[in-house]
Amino acid sequence: MSDLREIYQDVILDHYRKPRNFAVLEQASHHAKGHNPLCGDRIDVYLSVEDGVLQDVSFQGAGCAISTASASLMTEAVKGKGLDAVQSLFETFHRMVTQPEDDAQGVDLGKLEALAGVRELPVRIKCATLSWHTLQAALEQQDKPASTE
């Protein structure tokens, strides 16, 4: 059961039960919907971008512990960052959850590292990345909902 605790660790469960920045952002400059057709998870990501900086970010939706916690942790991680930094954070995060541990770069991802155990669960990786894909879609102002498929 040890590896289970690694996945469902306290920070994940905490962010699942009490998701941060869980609201509609009224003055959002960017917004996108995300959908994981495999499990039916749906998410809305709202952004307020000013001068190339993500001033504010929020999300709403219904999903599993991994997708909800990942979205919540993401909002904390990206708020106040420049768009280039957000992009590079996404790439590092994506590597962490998709690539073998040895290949992971030695970048400190802070609280986001709570999601590292997801790499052992190939069918759940999309749960962890849905909010990030939706964030990207919002930045790119895509009309179509972001999808994990």
Binding site: I7, C64, I66, C127
Partner: peptide
């Protein structure tokens, strides 16, 4: 309070 996919994952680990 638990999503079906979390149920599935935790049961699989058992």
């Amino acid at each position: 309070g638990v999503h079906a996919h979390d149920v599935g994952t935790i049961l699989d680990h058992q």
